[in-house]
């Protein structure tokens, strides 16, 4: 029975190792391939940490199993050795994890800066957000600048409004300004690997480069109230021409005076 426990604790790291090895090819970790440029870097970090965690888990479990096995096969006459208070051991298991953590924090610095630090954003998006995404309970309200003008923090005459659908150009870096009207929300596009909290009072620039035109899910990832689950929207990535055409349509629609429409349907 004593040996059973050693085998038991050796068994699980094998399972974990197997799962870690096959998971990426089965798509178990992520909803899809990363579909934005930053997504590849984020997935890279994820896998780096996964490897470290797997090695640590397998290593510690193997050591645990070894200790149990040794105890099980040892004669009952031998005395136990108590390690409590061993300075050498304390130092080892403090320094090794500290080293690992410092390693992780240094490696991710560049990626973090690329995502969060405005001055590291691609030049083309610096100070030129294409839209303001305003989270509110429980929807996403989008404000585009009037075509041909720049987006201002305060609403301007001619700004275009929509809800739960944001059109951005594909294959080029794009920046939006993220805000919230009430409580904290989070802008989460799983397939793009973009996740950023919207904080009351702050205007937070968020950039991404969607590799392919298409429709991407946008969710709220911060439990923001009873209607949190309703905060689902879509990001539509299109060619620049497609986005411009969309905005022209939106502008026409927003200036609708009900007369042209009636004439068209009467014809």
């Amino acid at each position: 029975m004593k040996k059973f426990w050693a085998l038991f604790f050796w068994f699980w790291p094998l399972v974990a190792l197997y799962v870690c090895l096959i998971a990426p090819s089965r798509g178990w970790w992520f909803p899809s391939e990363p579909l934005s440029t930053l997504g590849h870097q984020i997935d890279g970090l994820f896998y780096l940490i996964l490897i470290i965690v797997t090695v640590t888990f397998v290593g510690t479990q193997a050591a645990l199993g070894y200790a149990l096995w040794k105890g099980a096969t040892k004669g009952s006459s031998q005395k136990a050795w108590f390690s409590h208070g061993s300075h050498k051991l304390e130092i080892i298991w403090t320094i090794v994890p500290a080293f690992v953590l410092v390693f992780i924090s240094l490696t991710q610095l560049d990626v973090l800066a690329d995502i969060r630090v405005l001055s590291k954003f691609p030049d083309s998006v610096q100070n030129s957000p294409v839209a303001e995404v305003m989270a509110r309970q429980f929807e996403w309200r989008i404000r585009y600048p009037k075509p041909g003008t720049k987006l201002m923090n305060e609403p301007q005459p001619g700004d275009l409004y929509f809800v739960n659908e944001v059109h951005v150009p594909a294959a080029v870096p794009t920046m939006i300004n993220l805000r919230t009207q009430d409580v904290q929300h989070a802008f989460f596009a799983p397939r793009l690997r973009v996740k950023q909290d919207a904080v009351p009072g702050l205007i937070i620039p968020v950039w991404f480069e969607i590799e392919k035109a298409g429709e991407y899910e946008l969710l709220c990832a911060e439990l923001c109230g009873w209607g949190h689950y309703k905060m689902k929207a879509r990001i539509i990535a299109d060619s620049q021409k497609g986005v411009d055409e969309y905005l022209t349509r939106l502008e026409l629609e927003q200036n609708e005076d009900g007369v042209a429409d009636a004439e068209a349907s009467a014809e």
Binding site: Q137, F138, R141, V163, N164, E165, K232, A233, R234
Partner: peptide
């Protein structure tokens, strides 16, 4: 589709 801005009626555009 578009909700009622300024109220709790959200958009069901999707």
């Amino acid at each position: 589709k578009y909700g009622i801005p300024g109220t709790y009626m959200p958009s069901f555009l999707l």
